[in-house]
Design a binder for these strands. Structure first.
Lengths: 144, 144
DNA sequence: CCCCAGGAGTTGACGTGTCAACTCTAGCGT
DNA sequence: ACGCTAGAGTTGACACGTCAACTCCTGGGG
């Protein structure tokens, strides 16, 4: 197998740097406009109806404990509520509060606008096609 | 400004998912093969000779406090050493230990091989060109 | 000479993520 | 019916990043 040349490292560094700058900018926008983190945005998008914690973790492809910790913090801020599940009375489900739904609505617009402004509007079609193809391929062999 | 359509969201989600899977895989490789994190790898690569903490922070484009915290942890594990700087005797510089140099050497090979295997070897030239162009552009307008 | 303003570095509080250990319940075998 | 195990969910310890406050020089005015 060939070694990494300095051009390879430069390519990789620039790519990762661009990625990091972009994600940082989007995160700041989400925090500024809606007061939530990117992870919380993911929960708000995924949690359409009442769900079990495990379903949510599977849907997001996150560790259950990460979801549990995050839900605790979001519950304290009134974005989600734990719900009783079945006859046992154990709080094992979770759903959005009204506040959570409002925030989700607002965040969808704001975050979408930021993605469009910072990324999509500046992405020529052939670059979009290349990135799309690459993404599909990576998801295919690292996720499948 | 146009809204985000569902195709836009799908494109974005897949892209971010691929990015996340890839970074996770590379981080695990670095941890498994060399026992260091990606951030520590960055320090090991950048810290060629003795440097001041601020220089290091500037070179990496990180917050000084992040560097200070990370250096403390790396110092405890024997990868770097704080050095006395000037007549004041204040420990204000930092350099690699022998152990740090050995780890840096090993990490360069291992991480480079992983990047090549997981990314570069699978990236057709026109996709590489498109991604390279996009990266340059993003760094240009988010960093400049 | 003294003071003090500013830069460099550190530290602490807190949010967040991972891993491992723990609790609770349900379901099953005997 | 009893106990045991498997799964779901939670919790705690720790690693890491950010922000703000802090310490410690250092270099001019006065």
């Amino acid at each position: 197998m060939a070694e990494m040349g300095s051009a390879d490292w430069a390519f990789w560094d620039t790519w990762m740097r661009a990625q990091r700058l972009l994600v940082r900018e989007l995160d700041r926008g989400l925090q500024r406009d809606c007061g939530i983190s990117k992870a919380e945005f993911g929960v708000l998008m995924t949690l359409s109806g009442p769900m079990r914690v495990g379903e949510l973790a599977d849907a997001l492809d996150w560790e259950k404990s990460r979801v549990a910790h995050l839900l605790t913090r979001m519950e304290n801020r009134g974005l989600v509520a734990r719900t009783e599940d079945g006859a046992s009375g154990r709080r094992t489900g979770v759903e959005l509060t009204d506040e959570g739904r409002r925030t989700a609505e607002r965040a969808t617009r704001a975050h979408g606008a930021n993605i469009r402004r910072l990324v999509l509007d500046r992405l020529p079609p052939e670059q979009a096609a290349a990135i799309g193809a690459w993404s599909e391929q990576v998801v295919g062999y690292l996720d499948g």
